[in-house]
Design a protein around this nucleic acid. Sequence first.
DNA 1: ACCTGAACACCGTTCAAGT
DNA 2: ACCTGAACACCGTTCAAGT
Lengths: 212, 212
Amino acid sequence: MAATPPRHLSPRKRPRQARSAATLEVIFEATVQVLLAEGIHRLTTTRVAERAGVSVGTMYQYFPHKQALLYALNERYLDVLAVRIEKACEGEHGAPLARMIEALVSAYWDAKTERSDVTRALYRSAVELDNATLIEAFAARMDRATSAMLATAPDAAFDDLTLVNTTLLAVIFGTVRNVFERGLPEPLESGLRRQLVTMCLEYLKAVRRPVA
Amino acid sequence: MAATPPRHLSPRKRPRQARSAATLEVIFEATVQVLLAEGIHRLTTTRVAERAGVSVGTMYQYFPHKQALLYALNERYLDVLAVRIEKACEGEHGAPLARMIEALVSAYWDAKTERSDVTRALYRSAVELDNATLIEAFAARMDRATSAMLATAPDAAFDDLTLVNTTLLAVIFGTVRNVFERGLPEPLESGLRRQLVTMCLEYLKAVRRPVA
DNA sequence: ACCTGAACACCGTTCAAGT
DNA sequence: ACCTGAACACCGTTCAAGT
């Protein structure tokens, strides 16, 4: 993640040695396990430490408090997600609009679907903390990836690319989240996915400046 | 709210007497105040009780646990929101599509904007609890209100009204939430609102069955 | 230098004792 | 019948004592 997180949420020390990096990894894994097995309200520092096989004191060497642990976990998850979407966007540079939108929606939708248990758990863990910085950094990365892609579309150009791009991202990310939070029954869910693609394309057709 | 909440989340007793109803109201008000003044992580039963001028024991007569209090608070908020949107929809029965969409987006957007501090605080409070039931009940009410409205549009009819309607709601609600969570700078925010309306209308134009 | 875990302050929840 | 608040179990966090 590009933006530096608020100081009070960053890890206490960077893992300089292999052992430290390993410990950090173990703590993260333990956190996800406890999150999935017991839920957010039973995620305690004691339980995570126990599962990770370290003492609470050790955990507090890596994270100044529980929120910092959850913050770092979300940071990692968003980084993986961002990389996936950036790659999907780069893969469609120069492609027609329809393929771009299909690729973007697919990449995001599929990422959420594949590990919907983790996704949902992280959504829940994220709200307890001040994640505005995290969300903003993620949004900025996505903005860059998709506007770079849209600028290469052979079949359209836009007067206000920033506005169009921000709209697309807000609509796609917002809709996907809404669908997964509701947990729609299956025929509806995949129907909605196609409608979302249609909607974005109709919008782009309406606001584009026709290319000679 | 129509659906009965999970038993473990419902208030312990219904307020049968005027005094009880007043106490309940005082507790709710105190909760919102603490939420806004101190934040979700400092919202403790002791603090709420103190602010409300009752003892913790009394609070536990009305709510079996803290989650039930937050659940009830969200329930009330969603009810107010639902009533507003239902009225907005009823007011546009028989109107052209463009007016319907404008009214729907306005009603939801404005409700979120007016008290964005409370909205945001409640978003945060909601995630700690099992609010699936609440969300589903709200979504069902909205489904009814907007599909009833859309069915009366003089300038369009739809082959699959359920799919179209579910799509519209997911897109509008999801997008608005996304915009408010990001906190976009002002020219972008109101620009995005107009784009959202455009987008919905272009979508509806594309999927409608032309009326004779 | 790094790890440990008892100790502390505070939280959610209960229930014996009051009125 | 209803309210109170000390008491209990548990949580986040610290830091003296260990290695």
